[in-house]
Design a protein around this nucleic acid. Structure first.
Lengths: 122, 122
DNA sequence: TTAGCCACTAACAAAAATGTAAGTCATGCG
DNA sequence: CGCATGACTTACATTTTTGTTAGTGGCTAA
């Protein structure tokens, strides 16, 4: 649990309030969130165990944590089927899907930057 | 200094290698980098002390650190004038300027998301 | 001579993010 | 009964990021 009055936390809050860009980063900026989002963009519905298959290095703890954050931010939806053993599927919400264009641009620019840096001097 | 063989570091590296989006996030994803980048987009040339004026809460340590990272990633350029007291100006490189469109999109989407989340249920 | 300026840096401390290992739950099957 | 299943928690350890405080250097104006 996070302290709500450390300088650190106050600073972060202030930034998020005024800067849309920082706010966006806070939503998609966990270590594995890009991977999770990619899986959902490509697969429509993804089960917990499938995430673990396509992102083998992720730990249960962080996977669950990231999923809950994305859900709290209304980017993904959690659908539970009352079966045993349990089945849970995740999918993008409309809001989640609305960021696809942006994410693609980030991917493209990232690739571009990586290329550009590889060879040049300035 | 970072350990280069902790699980943590290895995971991060693996992600950056294969995912352009995560790579992009790693370049612009420090707490104050959005603010720094904004200042540069709006002002062309910015001095160290000016950063501190427009981002009052930032600490010297982090400001210098972020600037050095952005420079190492070829997004900004550091120009030193041999005067006393010293004068140093920072500006975006071409590569840095090439991300403006993307940053604007992130800002726009962030604002959109914030609005969308404010009122709705799903 | 001392104080002030600017752009930092170093040593240390705190907070936040991530990772590890082990357990939980309800049920159906042998 | 006892074990397997799938989707998680929980307690704890480690790593990474950020913040705090106190400096540095060379010059110049008081």
């Amino acid at each position: 649990m996070r302290k709500h009055n450390s300088t650190n936390a106050l600073n972060e809050q202030a930034i998020l309030d005024q800067c849309g860009m920082a706010y966006t980063l806070s939503l998609i900026g966990g270590r594995w969130k890009p991977s999770i989002l990619w899986a959902l963009i490509r697969n429509d519905k993804v089960r917990y165990s499938h995430f673990k298959k396509v992102i083998p290095e992720i730990s249960d703890r962080i996977l669950a944590l990231h999923l809950r954050e994305l859900e709290a931010d209304k980017l993904i939806r959690r659908v539970v089927y009352a079966e045993v053993p349990p089945r849970v599927e995740y999918e993008l919400t409309d809001l989640g899907r609305s960021m696809e264009v942006m994410l693609e641009q980030m991917t493209t620019w990232g690739a571009f930057h990586k290329e550009a840096v590889k060879g040049s001097a300035t």
